[in-house]
Amino acid sequence: MVKLRGGGIVASRVLQRLMDDRERHGLTTDIVHLFRTYITSSHGPNAWNRRKGADGFAYQGFNYPKSVWGGQLKARMRRLEGDDRATAYKLMGGTNTPYRRRWQAQMKQGRHAGWYRTMAGTVDEMRLENGKIVSCVKTPAGMVEVAADFVIDCTGLEADIAEHRVLADLLQHSGAGRNPVGRLDVERTFELRGSASGPGVMYASGATTLGGYFPGVDTFLGLQVAAQEIVDDLARRGFCRRIGTFRSIRQWLRWARNKQP
């Protein structure tokens, strides 16, 4: 018996691995899956903002709705401040995972055969008892005890940025502040707000700045977008030359011929 916690991409991949192994090696693994927030169907505040969901999971292809990387949501988030921005983050964030047909078929089979069960709740306490790990789960229907041979925690980490020594130093001494989500506050150009010193500017992107005007900032494509906008800002300040149409074509042609751009 394995107890799995979490409803994100890690949980869904670990779950599939357990089900794959079960199939491949003829195992008799029983799986109990615990969700803190159990999603039963499409969810959202109105018809224009509904994310698909079922069986506990919220389904979304990537960390965010795709248009935060360049479309309507990117444009919209750039205009939001304070609480409005924090609310928008909440709406499109939350734990989610991509929908995959193969894994859905396995889950269906598991539910049917009774070796895959789900429950909603939070773990209050865990203890060892007769070689098993017993979790006391607080569910809407009251406390339930679940005994398992293994517990796989896929719930992820939420650390405060001040736990990082350099970032704590920045917050304390440089004038940098926090955004509505509690991380480093950056401008639309990714300049670290409040930390400018004469002509000196500091830029920041990535997960430490999540909560800013560009939600995709903690993703690979988002880092690329941020880098481009930082370079544009540097060019505006006369630090380097802007990458325009002709320069881009010229450099792309060099890249295509396997030459250093």
Binding site: G70, K74, Q228, D232
Partner: peptide
């Protein structure tokens, strides 16, 4: 290629 910002600006 010619318009590197195009797809990030909707």
């Amino acid at each position: 290629v010619p318009f590197i910002r195009w797809r990030f600006r909707g």
